[in-house]
Design a protein around this nucleic acid. Structure first.
Length: 488
RNA sequence: CGGGGAGUGGCGCAGUUCGGUAGCGCAUUCGCUUUGGGAGCGAAGGGUCGCAGGUUCAAAUCCUGUCUCCCCGACCA
C-alpha cells in the first residue's frame, strides 16, 4: 500500500509537513515565509473562527476593523512596544512603480513623507482611535475584537506555527478600572482555555508569563500552553493586561463619576492560525490529520461501494436517505459519489483529511440492512444496523470528541514531571514534555536555564501550588514550582 | 546571520563521480477491464535540467558568479 506520510518518531518536522500536504491544508507561497491556505485548511479555520466569534459575542464583544497600515510615528509612542516589534516590521516606503525596460521598478518620486508599517499587531492604531471615542466613564468599557491579518518579519518560519503573514483575531478593550481590565484579561484567557479544550480537544495549562516572555507593552501576559506529541510546548493563545501603558502613550483619558480625569485601563488578547498547527500536532497520526468532530468541516463521509452502473444506482439510492437523516441532526456529512476513484483510495484520502467518521455502504450491507462505520481516531471499523444510524453517529461523534481530549490529556499528563535538582532537570528535559521546578524568580536564572538547556519557563501556572522550596539553580527561596519546556 | 541539504515536465526523484544532446514513478488525456483499503493493461501529451557567464566539436554533467527554497540554530504567536 502506498504510504505518503512519514513516521512521527522518524522525523517529526517531515511528518508535520506531510500531514499538511496530504490533507491539502496549506502550502508554501512564492514569497518567503508566507503561506497559501488551501480550501480544506481555510474551512477548518472558518469553523474555528465561527466558534470563537460566538464566544466573544457571548462575553459582550463586538467586531470592528482597523487599517492594515500604521504610521511609523504611532509605533514609537510606547517604548517597550517598539522595542518588541521594531525588529520585525515590514515597512512601506513608496506608493508607485514605474515601467522600465524589461519590467517595473519603484518610482523614486513616490517616496512617502512618513513610512507606513504593515501592522504586526494593532494596539497603536486602535488606541489612536480610542482617544477620540472615549470622553466619559459612560463610554466605557469598549469591548472590540477584530479578525485580521498581521505581518511579522520572522527569520525562520513554519507552516501555521510561524509565518510572516498570519490570520488572527485581536481583542482590544478599554476599561474604567484596573479590576475590570484584569477581570477581562482573565475572562478571555478562560474563553481560550475553553475553546482549546472543549472544541480543539487540546488540553492546556493556563498561567502567567514571566517578565522576559511578556508581550511588549503589557503588565501581565496570561497564556494557554499545550504539549505537542513530540514533547515540545506550544503557546496557543495570549491575553494581556496592558495597564495604562497604551492609554498614557496615546493620551486616552475619561472623566469619571467623581469628575476626575483618568487614564483608561486596557487589555488585548489574540489567537491565530497557529492553533491549526497545534491541532495538527495534538491529534494527527501516521495516517494523516485527525480533526475533532466539533471543528471538522466534514464530520461524516459516506463512501459507496459498487460494481457497475446498476449497482451504483442501488447503492446511491440506499445512501442518500442516510445523508438526509444525518443532515436533519445538523451533522455535516458528504456523500463521496465520485466514480473515478476506488473505495480504497477514498478511505485513505478521507483519513488523510481527518474526517472523523466514515460510513461505507455496499451491496453486502444493503442485503443485511447494515452499514460499516469507521472511526478516524482509533481506525476501528464496525458493522452496524442501518436503523437508528443518525443517533448512533451523533453519539459516536461526541464520543470521539471526548476521547480525543482524554487521550491528549493523558499524553500531556504522562509527559509532565516534577524535579528538584538542576541535574535532574537537565536530564529530564532531554525527553521533552512539561517539567515543574522551583525557580528563584530572577531573569538571570531564567536566562541561564534557557542557554544551558534550551528550556523556557512556559508560564507560572494559575493552578494553586502551596509547595515552597528552593530554586533548582541558585538555591534561593521559591514560592512555587513553575512550568518549563522546550517550545515551538 | 551561522551550519547542513536541494533546485531536472504539475508533484516526487534518477542521471553529475568519468561531458556525447534527458529518463523513471505518480498525476493528466483517450480506450478497455476494474471498484469491500491508495486499480490493471495499452496508447498519448507535457521539460531551453534555477539564472547568467565561461571552457569545449559537444554541458543537466566541468569552472566562475548569482538567485531561490527546505532543514537545524539565533529571533518570535
Amino acid at each position: 500500500m502506498a504510504k505518503h506520510i512519514t513516521n512521527r518518531k522518524d522525523d517529526y518536522s517531515q511528518w508535520y509537513l506531510d500531514i499538511i500536504k496530504e490533507a491539502k491544508l496549506a502550502e508554501h507561497s512564492p514569497v518567503r515565509g508566507c503561506m497559501v491556505i488551501r480550501p480544506n485548511g481555510f474551512a477548518l479555520w472558518e469553523n474555528m473562527k465561527g466558534v470563537l466569534d460566538g464566544m466573544f459575542k457571548d462575553t459582550g464583544h463586538e467586531n470592528a476593523y482597523f487599517p492594515l497600515f500604521i504610521p511609523k510615528s504611532f509605533l514609537s509612542k510606547e517604548a517597550q512596544h517598539v522595542e518588541g516589534f521594531a525588529k520585525e516590521c515590514a515597512v512601506v516606503t513608496h506608493s508607485r512603480l514605474k515601467s522600465v525596460e524589461g519590467g517595473v521598478e519603484v518610482d523614486p518620486e513616490s517616496k512617502l513623507d512618513e513610512e507606513l508599517i504593515v501592522r504586526p499587531t494593532s494596539e497603536t492604531i486602535i488606541w489612536d482611535a480610542y482617544r477620540n471615542w472615549i470622553q466619559s466613564y459612560r463610554d466605557l468599557p469598549i469591548l472590540i475584537n477584530q479578525w485580521a491579518n498581521v505581518v511579522r518579519w520572522e527569520m525562520r518560519t513554519r507552516l501555521f506555527l510561524r509565518t510572516m503573514e498570519f490570520l488572527w483575531q485581536e481583542g482590544h478593550t478599554a476599561h474604567a478600572t484596573e479590576e475590570e481590565a484584569v477581570a477581562e484579561t482573565k475572562q478571555m484567557l478562560e474563553v481560550y482555555r475553553k475553546f482549546a479544550e472543549d472544541y480543539m480537544a487540546m488540553p492546556v495549562i493556563t498561567g502567567v508569563k514571566t517578565a522576559s516572555e511578556r508581550f511588549a507593552g503589557a503588565i501581565d501576559t496570561y497564556c494557554i500552553e499545550a504539549m505537542m506529541q513530540d514533547g515540545k510546548a506550544l503557546q496557543a493563545g495570549t491575553s494581556h493586561f496592558l495597564g495604562q501603558n497604551f492609554a498614557k502613550a496615546f493620551d486616552v483619558k475619561f472623566q469619571d463619576q467623581d469628575g476626575e480625569h483618568k487614564h483608561v485601563w486596557a487589555t488585548s488578547w489574540g489567537v491565530s492560525t497557529r492553533l491549526i498547527g497545534g491541532l495538527i500536532m495534538t491529534h494527527s497520526d501516521d495516517n494523516g490529520l485527525v480533526i475533532p468532530p466539533k471543528l471538522a468541516p466534514t464530520q461524516v463521509v459516506i463512501v459507496p461501494i459498487y460494481r457497475g452502473d446498476e449497482q451504483r444506482e442501488t447503492v446511491l439510492e440506499y445512501a442518500k436517505p442516510i445523508k438526509k437523516e444525518l443532515e436533519a441532526k445538523n451533522i455535516r456529512v458528504s456523500l463521496d459519489d465520485r466514480d473515478n476513484q476506488k473505495p480504497g483510495f477514498k478511505f485513505a484520502e478521507h483519513e488523510a483529511k481527518g474526517t472523523p467518521l466514515r460510513i461505507a455502504v455496499g451491496p453486502r450491507d444493503i442485503e443485511n440492512n447494515n452499514l460499516e462505520l469507521a472511526r478516524r481516531d482509533t481506525l476501528e471499523k464496525n458493522i452496524v444496523s442501518r436503523e437508528g444510524i443518525a443517533d448512533r453517529v451523533e453519539e459516536l461523534l461526541s464520543t470521539i470528541q471526548n476521547e480525543l481530549f482524554d487521550r491528549a490529556k493523558k499524553r500531556t499528563d504522562d509527559s509532565t514531571r516534577e524535579v528538584e535538582s538542576y541535574e535532574e532537570f537537565k536530564k529530564e528535559i532531554e525527553d521533552g514534555g512539561f517539567i515543574y521546578a522551583h525557580w528563584d524568580g530572577t531573569d538571570e536564572t531564567e536566562q541561564k536555564i534557557k542557554e544551558e538547556t534550551k528550556a523556557t519557563i512556559r508560564c507560572i501556572p494559575l493552578a494553586p501550588d502551596d509547595k515552597t522550596g528552593k530554586c533548582m539553580v541558585t538555591g534561593k527561596p521559591s514560592e512555587r514550582k513553575v512550568l518549563f519546556a522546550r517550545a515551538y
